[in-house]
Write a protein that binds this DNA or RNA. Structure first.
Lengths: 225, 225
DNA sequence: ATCATTGTTATTGGATCCAAAGTAAAGGCT
DNA sequence: AGCCTTTACTTTGGATCCAATAACAATGAT
């Protein structure tokens, strides 16, 4: 197998997220163990972790089943990320942003600006934006200086489509995606601005709105071409 | 042992929460296994769960250590609960509160009112309030109708002092505690009011403020006797 | 004397075995 | 024929065994 180096949990996580297992499907320990060529022990350990992450749920007394994710679940996961990252942003604004964090955020904003300044989007730009985006969000969450908040966010990010860097990219319509990223970049700059001036409430609200960008804006941009 | 019926995770959770293990102390699988009279296997499983819950953290490549909780961590956990329960309340208000939920919340509010109406607090009332309180919060979270949100809250509640029903009771000063519960009851009624009228933003803010009642109000009440 | 290297020990990860519990199926009874 | 009971099988939980590895200690070299 190609990814023998990755841990069992992340491999399973990826498979579940990719919809490789049907939602509601029961996962037998023996079956999975055989599928990955390991014994039952590591599978049992992994299942407990995946259960806590919310990807698996107990199927009565008969082991675990793949958690089913509705559209509403995705929506909620994004909103949860919104309020949590909003909390992180507010904390950062209220406690004052350290110089190095400001520099780091400025750096990623500059990078985003340069990426979008050319006025259009290339296929190859997607990955770069994903990188920029996760560094921006990661810097804020990290600078909020609270393991509890960071853990809550990271746990939520284990849910499919919930993570900030899991923006659905529609390679078919790069023009529309460009508009979306332009808006996201604008959000980033506004958030940066409010963080710098210690506007906690504004930073929080902006962050919460920013989280929704993948949910609500596509339809909006679709209607107004 | 007296509590053989409880699962290993909850027993460990309780011990860790009670400070039975020193923060930062390394927990060996063998040692814990022997202490509980079981083999290493269930301990290993439990450790993975406790790790995800944030009570244990990996100690390098050498097993797990007891997570250390600072006062700031407790504060953050309470704020996280605030924003999450706030989200639940807003969802409930915006989607409209079903009749049965309104009746249930009204019931617990009535019970709280009757408990406090006598104007003072008895030692025995504490447990009853805890019951009322968790039912009130539980009803709202449940009625928000989102497993994602409910799970996020429940995971956060595993952290010591983060759960809504873990109000620190100072049996030495029941008069002050009475004031606190009076305020909490008032919060509950205001939240109920805003939920009924569909005031999402108000319900959310009230819920967030309500979460802080155990953190900030004691000092306030201490200064103003 | 200090540092590096090597050997020993402690501890975790993985595999296998056994027991317990639950489910499905087959057979018997009304 | 339908339902209940009993039996066989599947599957998970717990215990033990073995291997891999990291920490520790001791010994030797510079």
């Amino acid at each position: 197998m190609s990814d023998d180096d990755k841990s069992l949990v992340s491999r399973l996580r990826k498979l579940i997220g990719a919809g490789h297992y049907h939602p509601g499907e029961r996962l037998g320990e023996e079956a999975v163990a055989e599928q990955f060529g390991v014994s039952r022990t590591p599978v049992r350990l992994a299942f407990r972790t995946l259960e806590q992450e919310g990807l698996l749920q107990r199927a009565g007394k008969r082991g675990f089943m793949v958690r089913e994710f509705t559209q509403a679940d995705v929506h909620c996961a994004v909103e949860v990320r919104g309020v949590l990252e909003g909390l992180a942003a507010r904390r950062l604004a209220e406690r004052g942003m350290p110089q190095d964090v400001a520099e780091s955020l400025g750096f990623w904003i500059q990078k985003g600006r340069r990426l979008l300044d050319k006025g259009y989007l290339l296929e190859a730009d997607i990955n770069q934006w994903s990188d920029i985006n996760s560094h921006f969000h990661g810097s804020i969450v990290g600078a909020a200086d609270s393991r509890v908040v960071a853990d809550a966010i990271s746990r939520n990010n284990h849910l499919p489509f919930a993570a900030a860097d899991s923006i659905i990219i529609d390679s078919e319509d790069l023009a529309r995606e460009f508009k979306k990223l332009q808006l996201a970049q604008f959000h980033h700059e506004l958030i940066f601005q409010s963080l710098k001036s210690g506007e906690g409430a504004r930073a929080e609200m902006l962050m919460r709105e920013h989280a929704l960008i993948g949910l609500r804006y596509p339809e909006l941009l679709a209607d107004n071409p």
